[in-house]
Design a protein around this nucleic acid. Sequence first.
DNA 1: AATGAATGAGCATTCATTCAT
DNA 2: AATGAATGAATGCTCATTCAT
Lengths: 202, 202, 202, 202
Amino acid sequence: MSPRNIEKDLLMREERKKFILDSAVQVIATKGIGSTHMNDIAAAASISIGNLYHYFKSKDEIYAELLYMTQTDYGLFVTAASQMPGNAIDKLRYICSTWLSISTNWAFTILIQTARTTESIPLEIRNAVTERFTANLQPVAAIMKEGQESGHILDGEDPLELAFYFVSLIQGLTLQRAPGIEVRITPKTESIIRLFQVGFKK
Amino acid sequence: MSPRNIEKDLLMREERKKFILDSAVQVIATKGIGSTHMNDIAAAASISIGNLYHYFKSKDEIYAELLYMTQTDYGLFVTAASQMPGNAIDKLRYICSTWLSISTNWAFTILIQTARTTESIPLEIRNAVTERFTANLQPVAAIMKEGQESGHILDGEDPLELAFYFVSLIQGLTLQRAPGIEVRITPKTESIIRLFQVGFKK
Amino acid sequence: MSPRNIEKDLLMREERKKFILDSAVQVIATKGIGSTHMNDIAAAASISIGNLYHYFKSKDEIYAELLYMTQTDYGLFVTAASQMPGNAIDKLRYICSTWLSISTNWAFTILIQTARTTESIPLEIRNAVTERFTANLQPVAAIMKEGQESGHILDGEDPLELAFYFVSLIQGLTLQRAPGIEVRITPKTESIIRLFQVGFKK
Amino acid sequence: MSPRNIEKDLLMREERKKFILDSAVQVIATKGIGSTHMNDIAAAASISIGNLYHYFKSKDEIYAELLYMTQTDYGLFVTAASQMPGNAIDKLRYICSTWLSISTNWAFTILIQTARTTESIPLEIRNAVTERFTANLQPVAAIMKEGQESGHILDGEDPLELAFYFVSLIQGLTLQRAPGIEVRITPKTESIIRLFQVGFKK
DNA sequence: AATGAATGAGCATTCATTCAT
DNA sequence: AATGAATGAATGCTCATTCAT
């Protein structure tokens, strides 16, 4: 009946959406969230504003999907790290060095923090973000626990609490890497890991 | 118009400005920066919008002064801590517990990060913020150095680098305390200090 | 491509157009004119927007044809009534009761009034509507004249004028029956007819 | 304390609002409701769009107040008529001739009908309009009753029903007077009144 | 100094219409 | 013929800033 291939259309639609979201991340990583407008996103994806609204029905929806994508990707990354071969220290090292080396991560961090603290963003979205944030702590907590059991990581603390500190520290460091910020101190993975490591210190 | 009155007027003006800035912080801590508008600030200070502009010539200026005030206060706080009686661990403990206990600090942190990463804010202001951020690391670095020398704090790292991690960690944790965020993990000063402490770990 | 097929195609095209117009009336009767958009019409007719434009070259054209259809149908209805067996009162009664019983007629009335008074609709269309409105008064005027001559209907007035009042009254009543309007008074055909009837009143 | 006269300010604000509403009616009477936009209203009142929003917080609010004003004015007019000296016929005559002579009344009628039938207008407003419409029937019904008792007006019908017909007829006629409509029939007050009058007809 | 009305550029969003497939 | 993605002018509304009193 239809001269179009419906399946292919749906697939293309998903691809387009992904492409738009990726483009949006690029702009946000350059301009910051506060100054990224719908026309910036449209321009970044090389489509018209009107067409942008064919894929997402509001700015909030873009926000929500962006947050979902970002946090899901991060969750997958952390989960993969927790299942890597090697000991707990190796895994933390991998997380730390990889995360700090991605230069646009500051944008994710600010994106997430802003989403959580901006009144105009629907409570629903904000709660979902916090929910995922908490869920994403679990794989790191698992690494901490494993490290404590193998004697590599500081004992005596709740593994979840340690994970919370580790992630907060990395987030805090990530923020210092936003464009235009020239802190002359470069975080070093080895030094960061040592904070959580046992036996290294005399 | 005696010179006394002029002096007094200037003094009152400064007091009014301080009052307005303090009021602004209150709103921002409640509504977030993105959704705080000039009329919110005016309302918080119980003055008219027009009058607000008699004290500050633009929103950017309020931003700038707010950042200056915030960071200066923080600098004084950290400097005072570094000159406290007691050993390095005591000082870090004081910084950590005090900072985390102030419930509106998340607003300062986001304020500062947003200022640094928002394109529309003049480069001049953004640089000043980073400058002060770096300067404010010094007292903490001094504590770290003192601690390394007295054998209380991890050796082998640049004290400035350690200070950077310490501050980033606390900033990261502060962000998790924004209103509406319900992370069920409460950071504990003792556990945080331990990360930087020597000899505690077996 | 036999000539038969071409004829059949043209016929089908006309049928499709009629179907689309009928569907459009349904939506308008449900949503109101102001909030009926091209995609609503397309959806109501179960075709795509693009295809809609294969049958009608603009929203104005749909409007115009809708008005034409509506008014033509009404004209046929009124003409048929004027040629019915029975006296003038019977004929008016038929017009009145039939028209008021059709629950979507308010949509036609608003459609027509809006068309006449909306600047953005081309003058040409608006004039055509008024033209047809006036033409449609004639059969009713004929009934009035017949009634005056047979002594059933008020004498002393221009039959056309009486027709004008009769139609305006019915239009006015129709408007009160739009969805969401809850006027607790139900118009009664007998009472309405009496206004124009002779001898009934003492 | 304030260099302004607060009372006077409030008074002026009300005057300004009234002026804006009056201006809005003018545009609507010229352009039709559907094509009247906020900038049209602003231009008609010779103020900026931004300032328009100092007086009314949305287009809906302007609509609502316009409807309230219009219907309230109409209610006062009808009530005054019902309390005039003279018999019922005199009163109806006054209502009819006055209402039909005001050339912008068609705009009120369309305004009200559109408000009642447009989905996008909040149900609350629509209900209020219908409420007031019904309330405004009462004074006319009172005239009808008085006329029935004094033998001037058709007996045997519910006075409220008669009022409903009378008002619907006048509304219907009003609609025919919208700009751009050239119906060559002029309604005559005397003829209209006669429809409801007793004894005139032989 | 103090007030709040006034301004208008800027933003998110809508919708009739066109176009490539 | 049929589809729905693509376009962009237009609309309602916001908000930092200025102005008259």
